[in-house]
């Protein structure tokens, strides 16, 4: 999983470099085209948005010639602390209200954040669900190797909420530091089941099987987006937020399994 992501990143970097090379060559040939100066929009986004935001990046770059969108994916709290510590960024899309709050608490957004998607937990099992897991309570069965996110991470906080709502206490074999690691432990066959987001199961394309459970609705995760204060490309940042909250963005997100934004 991670290796593939890394390869994708490398390929992306190579493309980016190739693109830059071509761009500078073109501008050297026609130095008079002044207004089409290449601009770069920097977006910090939660790792769970990787597939959807990459699709939106392609759309955005087609709509806005001369603009390159650079997206840095990571754990929401990592990204939040980067903004708090002064990393240059235009847009921040977080996977939880709590992480966005660490940024708004320091008045580091240009406007109040808006919700653009929601996500719920789902049980990921081995393909074919050999252990016959049907409910959240099944995860507490003895002898089952269950992996969850650690409580400080957003997906772990959601899992704790579900435990509280159901009264079922899980005894996981590991509390991973992010949701993709949970997925990896299941898809590599080392864990029987894991709690991840619906969208992670969709993105895993058959490497794991998803089992929905009604209690997941007790812990809906909200995804807020905001333009960062003093963004170097403030106008482009606004356009990006409009794209994400607009028709194309919403269609892309919902195709990936995200829920409609919170009112």
């Amino acid at each position: 999983m991670k290796v593939r992501a890394l390869l994708g990143l490398l390929a992306g970097l190579a493309l980016l470099l190739a693109g830059c090379g071509g761009g500078s060559g073109a501008s050297a040939a026609s130095p008079t085209s002044g207004d089409a100066a290449p601009r770069t929009l920097t977006v910090l986004a939660a790792a769970s948005l990787t597939e959807t935001f990459n699709a939106m990046k392609t759309q955005f770059e087609t709509d806005n010639p001369g603009v390159t969108v650079r997206i840095s994916y990571g754990g929401s709290s990592d990204l939040a602390s980067q903004i708090v510590n002064g990393a240059p960024a235009d847009v921040f899309a977080a996977a939880s209200d709590a992480t966005m709050k660490t940024v708004t608490d320091k008045s580091l957004t240009a406007a109040p954040p808006v919700s653009f998607a929601t996500n719920v937990l789902q049980i990921a099992t081995q393909p074919g669900n050999p252990k016959g897991i049907a409910t959240f309570a099944d995860l507490a069965k003895p002898g089952l190797k269950v992996v969850v996110c650690a409580p400080p991470v957003p997906c772990g906080a959601a899992e704790q909420k579900v435990e509280k709502a159901t009264g079922v206490t899980l005894t996981p074999v590991s509390q991973e530091t992010d949701v993709k690691s949970v997925l990896g432990k299941v898809s590599s066959g080392n864990a029987d089941a894991g709690l991840v987001y619906v969208t992670d199961v969709t993105a895993a394309k058959g490497q794991v099987q998803g089992v929905s459970f009604p209690e997941a609705q007790q812990a809906v995760t909200n995804y807020p987006i905001a333009v960062v204060k003093n963004a170097p490309q403030a106008d482009l940042a606004q356009k990006w937020v409009a794209l994400v909250t607009g028709e194309f963005g919403q269609k892309t997100l919902q195709a990936a399994g995200f829920g409609a934004p919170q009112a």
Binding site: S174, Q175, E176, T177, S181
Partner: peptide, 11 residues
């Protein structure tokens, strides 16, 4: 973190 996981008291 990649191989052993993360659980208080065990890993």
């Amino acid at each position: 973190i990649t191989f052993a996981g993360n659980l208080q008291g065990t890993t």
